[in-house]
């Protein structure tokens, strides 16, 4: 793979709902193996852009490529099998299954053969991998609990671990720290960084918490009113008057 080619390339994407323009002519490049951030005030179109990328709705114009392949017309499961996963703002896990089961069924379905789907669920190797990752996010002791009984923050960690279990190439995280106990945020940032470094997963993160995103991302894009306002390093953005205005509400 050509390293100059970005992993995800969003080229002048526009999307509107009825008369409301949610994304207008947005271009963002997410480079390989890095952590890229996406910020912007509420209603600026961040989640819409995420949904466009992972295939929840069609885009009006523009193109989205993943490793050079056009994906803007593919559907969600196809995109997921290419190796691009997303987590949800409202955490989504399989609530009536226990944590280990949640993990086991999250293995990659990219190259699964027809016979493979009838493999015993309690496969030793997969189970061990699941337990290691649960340990990685600090849920090892809760592994046999029904996941719906976990606290919101724990569910969020579980969702993150499930995504790692899938061994994706890219992980799109929609507000990973929202709703998480502030004392745990540092631990989460550390884990996100380690997932990026140790597992080599490219991260593309929506985040509201400025401290978190400035700590985490190497490059950040800022949206406002559906348009791309600025792209740059954390330092550049922090000193960008337009970004500051957007957040303070001065139009």
């Amino acid at each position: 793979m050509n390293s100059s080619q970005p992993q995800i390339e969003v080229k002048s994407v526009s999307k509107s709902y009825g008369g409301v323009v949610a994304n207008k002519d947005i271009s963002i490049r997410v480079p390989h193996g890095r952590i890229t951030g996406l910020i912007g005030p509420n209603g600026s179109g961040k989640t819409t852009l995420f949904n466009s990328i992972v295939g929840y709705h069609p885009i009006d114009s523009g193109s989205i490529t993943f490793e050079g392949q056009e994906i803007s017309t593919l559907r969600v499961p196809d995109i997921a099998r290419l190796g691009m996963l997303r987590t949800f703002q409202q955490t989504r896990i399989y609530k009536k299954m226990n944590c280990v089961q949640n993990m086991i069924i999250s293995v990659s379905h990219r190259d699964e053969g027809f016979g493979g789907i009838f493999k015993q669920a309690k496969d030793r190797e997969t189970e061990q991998q699941a337990e290691e990752l649960l340990n990685f996010v600090g849920l090892y002791q809760k592994r046999n609990l029904i996941s719906g009984d976990l606290s919101f923050g724990q569910q969020k960690l579980l969702e993150f671990a499930m995504a790692l279990m899938n061994k994706p190439k890219v992980l799109l995280l929609d507000e990973p720290t929202a709703g998480i106990n502030p004392t745990l945020i540092n631990g989460l940032i550390d884990r996100l960084k380690r997932a990026n470094e140790e597992f080599g997963i490219t991260l593309f993160v929506i985040e509201h918490n400025m401290r978190v995103i400035m700590n985490l991302a190497e490059e950040i894009s800022c949206l406002a009113h559906g348009e791309l306002l600025a792209t740059g390093s954390p330092d550049e953005l922090q000193n960008d008057q337009r970004v500051i205005d957007a957040y303070l509400g001065a139009h």
């Binding site: 559907r75 997921a80 949800f88 989504r92 399989y94 299954m97 069924i105 789907i117 669920a121």
Partner: peptide, 17 residues
Amino acid sequence: LAMNAIRDDEDKAEAMG
């Protein structure tokens, strides 16, 4: 497990591939 996953949250199951 996949059947149960579909029961619990089919959109999530699709999003996981």
